[in-house]
Design a protein around this nucleic acid. Structure first.
Lengths: 115, 115
DNA sequence: CTAATATATGAACAGTTATTCATATATTGA
DNA sequence: TCAATATATGAATAACTGTTCATATATTAG
């Protein structure tokens, strides 16, 4: 290639290749972002931002069927985005940690959304 | 439902429904996260974290075919994650803003990845 | 133990998305 | 203008992901 900045970019590319995270780590990060990249799951997260809730109330807050919400909750949980604890007959879900809230807020800021 | 915290959760659900962002905003946030949720695209972002590069060097840094990288770049660009500028025969790509870097770093922290 | 309620899950289908291949466009140098 | 290089893109196929339906598991009340 005849890039004007050939030498500089060549160096950048070499550094990038050298510092590229492992496939496994890339995969984990990708999976985490994918977990929060579907409208239904995002709704669940925005809802849980108001406080912990059991499935019944999450369904009430975000709409959709119990089955669909439950499937999505499993995905969120398996990716460490939300955590669940049993409370009698119910399972109460909440956001896993502040990172999740921070991610949501960063994205909203980036996109000039009001929260 | 017979949730112990019925009254409290009921209130949380109502607040969540009331403060739920518009479908359109949810969609934008979801699309943005989806844009950065594929391994190939993440690699591109991690690479660009080292500095701007033209397509040729990005391909060198992340591997894969020119065509595939180009397709992914288009997706990243159309979602405002990276920006492109022409420089002679080349198109030089760079991360759109600090939010992108912050998102990557937050995710890595959350997942206990080294960066 | 049985009935009722809350939540989870497997399988199938539908819609979406990534990759590849071939080709198009744009820029530069001769 | 022509050849060469860099990048982009349309179409087709293959892989993935969400939703639904039916059903399973777990907990509590009686």
């Amino acid at each position: 290639m005849r890039c004007e900045h050939g030498a500089l970019h060549e160096e950048t590319a070499a550094r990038a290749a050298k510092n590229m995270p492992q496939e496994e780590e890339i995969g984990r990060v990708a999976a985490a972002f994918k977990a929060i990249s579907e409208p239904c799951r995002l709704k669940i997260l925005f809802a849980l931002r108001q406080g912990e809730m059991c499935v019944f109330h999450i369904v009430q807050a975000v709409g959709g069927t119990q089955s669909a919400v439950s499937h999505q909750l499993r995905i969120l949980r398996s990716h460490g985005v939300v955590r669940a604890r049993r409370d009698g007959q119910n399972i109460v879900y909440s956001l896993a940690d502040e990172h999740v809230v921070a991610l949501l807020e960063l994205a909203c800021t980036h996109l000039h959304c009001k929260l």
